[in-house]
Design a protein around this nucleic acid. Structure first.
Length: 274
DNA sequence: ATTCTGTCCTGTAGGC
DNA sequence: TGCCTACAGGACAGAA
């Protein structure tokens, strides 16, 4: 489900709400959401641990517990946390897979109806393949115009598919790939290495701009995404092309079209995007 | 090496 | 209303 803006929204909320809190009880309702160890071992290893801070890398959330202990969570399509302050009624549903209680009396539940999400405890983040192989964040020092041009030049995949490749760049998923290409005026089917200098300029500036605007609006809610308070993201109202098949383009008279690339839906305006 | 396809799951929206 | 199919914010193995 969530892409970089949604995961960053979760990170900010969770760090504000849970920093310095200590796990006092953990109820694993469905073992399948935990990777590597049993629900019982997961629970035992987490009890008494204190959340020092909450980080993010691409679409992964990282709870920093100790120098050699991290709670890693990848929401994938439908995983998300809902927070309940002490004294508030905690609400569950069939998607609730883990319930975390803290010393303060606060509770955080983990919901994931499709069970694609991953939660694990790791000693060393570099032992996680996903984190070893992931590309730069769009705000890293590496993220420079010449780096982007060189990286694009080596690839023959359609630009939309490349934008979604986490080894290329961290954090962009299916919604923002379409939105970024619309803003950049580039057709999603274009092969990465065929982009002209002026198009690379557009892409280079729109990638962080679109993501930053989405973070400021607390992400996009299409179907199931909710923040830690159970609220929808407000970028949904700014979406230009995603999910708008056959509707009018906001910028020209054309219709938004939908195609499938690498098994995923892509939306674009055939008039605005060249 | 890079690129593409199918798979893991469950819920829900839309067509008939 | 109720059935049936298609599809859903991701990542990865295995095939081409």
């Amino acid at each position: 489900m969530p892409e970089l803006p949604e995961v960053e929204t979760m990170r900010r909320d969770l760090e504000r709400l849970l920093q310095q809190q200590i796990f006092s009880q953990i109820r694993v309702i469905d073992d399948r959401v935990i990777r590597g160890i049993s629900g019982q071992k997961f629970r035992d290893a987490l009890l008494g641990e204190r959340i020092q801070s909450v980080g993010r890398r691409g679409k992964a959330l990282i709870f920093n517990l100790r120098q050699d202990k991290f709670l890693l969570m990848q929401p994938m399509m439908t995983g998300h946390f809902i927070y309940f302050a002490a004294g508030k009624p905690v609400s569950f549903n069939p998607a609730t897979k883990i319930i975390f209680d803290f010393n303060s009396g606060d509770t955080m539940v983990y919901n994931d109806h499709r069970l694609f999400g991953r939660i694990s405890l790791v000693k060393d983040l570099s032992e996680v393949k996903f984190l070893r192989d992931i590309g730069p964040e769009p705000w890293d020092l590496t993220y420079q115009r010449p780096w982007l041009a060189a990286a694009l030049g080596k690839r023959t995949v359609p630009i939309k598919t490349l934008l979604m490749n986490q080894q290329f760049l961290a954090g962009i998923g299916n919604i923002y790939a379409s939105e970024i290409l619309f803003k950049s005026g580039i057709k999603p089917q274009r092969r990465a290495q065929t982009l002209k200098a002026q198009e690379i300029d557009q892409l280079f500036s729109w990638i962080p701009k679109v993501l930053e605007e989405a973070i400021a609006l607390r992400g996009t809610s299409m179907l199931t995404y909710r923040d830690t308070a159970g609220e929808r993201g407000n970028f949904s109202s700014r979406v230009q092309v995603y999910g708008r098949e056959n509707q009018d383009c906001y910028r020209c008279a054309g219709k938004i079209r939908k195609i499938v690339q690498a098994g995923r839906s892509t939306f674009f305006c055939a008039t605005c995007q060249k």
